Simulated scan of single mutants.
Amino acid sequence: MAVSFLALEVSDLCLGKPALRSLSVSATVRDALAALKNSEEGFISVWNCDHSPRIGFGEENDDVGCRCIGKVCMVDVICYLCQEENLLSPSDALKAPVSAILPKIPGLVMHLESSSSLLEAIDLILQGTQYVVVPLPSKRSSISRRKQHLKVSPSSSHNGREFCWLTQEDVIRFLLSSIGLFSPLPNLPIDTLGIISSDVLAVDYYSPASSAVGAISHSLAKQTSVAIVDGDGIFIGEISPSTLACCDETVVAAIMTLSSGDLMAYIDCGGPPEDLLRTVKERLKDKNLENMLQEFTILSSPTTDSSDEESALSPTRTLSKSGRLSRSLSYSARMVRKAEAIVCHPKSSLMAVMIQAIAHRVNYLWVIEDDCSLIGVVTFSSILKVFREHLETLCLDD
C-alpha cells in the first residue's frame, strides 16, 4: 500500500487549482505593486520566458523556455520599501526591476512535471523548496497566445500552457485524507517526534518594528512568522506575513515609527487604532519623513487628497477582501488572549496540530507552555519529514 501511495502523481493534488497569474521578469516593482492590488490570490508569480524558436522542438514543447523564478506578494514590496535607500523616494524605488524584491535563495522555486510522484514533491520540500510549480492540462487558445507577449498585465498562460503551485498545505491535506495509513503516528504527541524547532524568529515587544524587517522577510521565505515576546520569553503574539500581505505600502510608515508590539496592533484585522495613527503621523514629522508620507499617499491612491494623511496611513482602507484577515478563535488561540497567532501545546497530537493548522490556513503553529512561555514552532516542513521517514518504514515492511 505504501508503494502505491508514493507512486501517486502530483497532478492528482492539483485538480481544481487555479492557474498562476504571472508577471515577466522584465517588469518593474511598480508593475508588481499594481498587479498585487488587483490580485485575488494576494501574490504574483514571476517568470523568465524565452520564446525564440528552438530547433528540434515541436509546438507541443514550445514552453521549454518559460521558467518561474519566484513569487512576490505585498510583503516583499513593503520590506523593499523599508530599506534605508528607498525610504526617501519610494516612487524612484518602484522603478527598479521586479527581480530586486525576489528572495535570493537557490532552490526556493522548482518545477515538476505533472507525472512526477508525490514522493518527488515531498523530497523537494524537505530540501528547502517552498514553491513547486506544476503544469496544468494544456489549454491553447488565440487569447492565451496574445497574453504571453504582455510584459505588465498579469496572465496565466505561457505559450498556451498554464501552471499552478503545489503547496505544503496541499500535501498535508492529502496526507490527512489518508491518515489511517500512518497509524499510530498521528496520535503521538509532537514533543516525542522531534519536530518542535527552537530556532524561531522572535523580537521583543518593545523593540523598534524597523529592526524586525529582516526577520519578516526571512519568515516570508520560510513560510513561518515572527514571534513577539516579552523580556521573560512569554509569547504575546506575532507579526504575520499573511496579515501584513493584506496591507498596502503605506504600512511602511508604521514600521518605521512604531514598536514591534504596536505594529502587531496596527496591522490587526480590525484596522489601526486612532491613537496609533496619530503616533505614526507625529513621529514621521519628527524624523522629517513627511515627504515619504506624501509619496505613499500618491502611490496608494492617486485620486485621494494628499492632505488626508491620517486616511492614507490606514493599511486596510484599500482592502476589498477584509475577510482574508479574519480568523476564528480556537481554544488554543484563546490561550493567548493578546494574540491572533495560532498556538498548540507540546503534548498536542500530530493529527490535532495538522487539523488546527489547516483550519486556520497557516503553515506553522507556535508551541507554548501553560504559562504562555514560547517553546518553539512546528512547521509543515517538519511534519512532512516525519511522514517521509514513516513512509520509508512502510516500504521496507512491504
Score class of each variant (00 low, 15 high):
residue 6 L to T: 14
residue 16 G to F: 06
residue 19 A to V: 11
residue 20 L to W: 07
residue 22 S to E: 09
residue 23 L to P: 00
residue 25 V to S: 08
residue 27 A to G: 08
residue 27 A to D: 03
residue 32 A to K: 02
residue 35 A to V: 04
residue 38 N to R: 15
residue 42 G to Q: 07
residue 43 F to V: 04
residue 46 V to E: 00
residue 48 N to W: 09
residue 55 I to L: 15
residue 68 C to E: 01
residue 70 G to H: 06
residue 72 V to Y: 06
residue 76 D to C: 07
residue 77 V to G: 03
residue 81 L to W: 04
residue 82 C to G: 04
residue 84 E to D: 11
residue 85 E to F: 05
residue 94 L to K: 01
residue 95 K to Q: 05
residue 98 V to W: 02
residue 101 I to F: 04
residue 104 K to Q: 13
residue 105 I to R: 08
residue 105 I to M: 09
residue 106 P to S: 05
residue 113 E to F: 14
residue 113 E to W: 09
residue 115 S to P: 07
residue 118 L to Q: 00
residue 123 D to V: 08
residue 124 L to T: 03
residue 127 Q to F: 05
residue 129 T to C: 10
residue 135 P to I: 03
residue 137 P to W: 01
residue 141 S to F: 12
residue 142 S to C: 11
residue 147 K to D: 13
residue 155 S to F: 01
residue 156 S to V: 09
residue 158 H to C: 08
residue 159 N to Y: 07
residue 160 G to K: 02
residue 163 F to W: 04
residue 169 E to R: 13
residue 172 I to S: 03
residue 173 R to E: 12
residue 174 F to Y: 13
residue 177 S to V: 09
residue 177 S to I: 10
residue 184 P to R: 11
residue 188 L to K: 14
residue 193 L to I: 11
residue 196 I to R: 03
residue 197 S to F: 12
residue 199 D to W: 06
residue 201 L to Y: 08
residue 201 L to M: 12
residue 213 V to A: 04
residue 217 S to F: 06
residue 218 H to V: 06
residue 219 S to K: 10
residue 221 A to H: 06
residue 224 T to H: 04
residue 225 S to R: 06
residue 226 V to K: 01
residue 234 I to T: 13
residue 235 F to Y: 06
residue 236 I to E: 01
residue 237 G to K: 02
residue 242 S to I: 05
residue 250 T to W: 01
residue 252 V to P: 03
residue 253 A to S: 14
residue 277 L to C: 07
residue 279 T to P: 08
residue 279 T to D: 15
residue 282 E to T: 13
residue 287 K to A: 11
residue 291 N to F: 07
residue 293 L to N: 02
residue 296 F to P: 02
residue 296 F to V: 02
residue 302 P to T: 03
residue 304 T to D: 12
residue 307 S to T: 15
residue 310 E to A: 03
residue 313 L to T: 00
residue 314 S to D: 13
residue 315 P to N: 05
residue 328 S to E: 14
residue 335 M to E: 11
residue 339 A to K: 00
residue 340 E to Q: 12
residue 342 I to D: 00
residue 345 H to L: 14
residue 346 P to A: 10
residue 347 K to S: 15
residue 350 L to E: 07
residue 351 M to V: 15
residue 353 V to N: 03
residue 354 M to Y: 02
residue 354 M to H: 01
residue 367 V to G: 01
residue 369 E to D: 13
residue 370 D to I: 09
residue 371 D to G: 12
residue 372 C to T: 09
residue 376 G to A: 08
residue 376 G to V: 03
residue 383 I to S: 01
residue 386 V to N: 04
residue 388 R to G: 03
residue 391 L to P: 02
residue 396 L to K: 14
